[in-house]
Amino acid sequence: MEIDEKRLIERASSGDPEAFNRLMANHERRMYAVALRLCANREDAQDCLQEAMLRVYRAIGGFKGESSFSTWLYRITMNTCLDELRRRKNKQSASLDDLLDEGWAPADERGSPEGHAVRAEANRVLRQAIRELPEDMRAAVVLRDIQGCAYEEIAQALNINVGTIKSRISRGREKLREKLKQNPELFDTAGV
């Protein structure tokens, strides 16, 4: 797989669009997941995915393997989404009804049915709370707590030092906890 990927990267770098498309077929789902969680709606996420793919295509010749390929892709995806968000800042903003469910359904449901209901509600509150985070903070929290990236990887993807990333994520989480605490019904059945 690794060797295949390396070969595809080489071929894509020499301008072969079919090799590029095959290479990216392995990564598009992760890039889309990130875009969905950063953008306000599905259309924006799809636009960002397409724009990110074009940026990757244009830049792949310059990929030198200093970071892992997937970190490099996160970096381009993040930059694309953040650019898009900044551009649209004045056109705010989607109402809660417009917000997408896509990408926000749990991958697995463990535990009791009561637990599911609480988590679904927590999920809804968090989805909105994440959108209210400042963009840079949102990007870091999404990479850490949803995508499961290591702090170092996030630092590379966002081009910020690890210390700043840690404090940004910490403050982001604090804001999310504050939002949850404004919904007392979430705490009546949830035991620690």
Partner: peptide, 12 residues
């Protein structure tokens, strides 16, 4: 809650 809810979302 933050950990469980966000951690249960799919990476892809």
């Amino acid at each position: 809650l933050v950990r469980d809810a966000l951690g249960s979302l799919p990476e892809e």
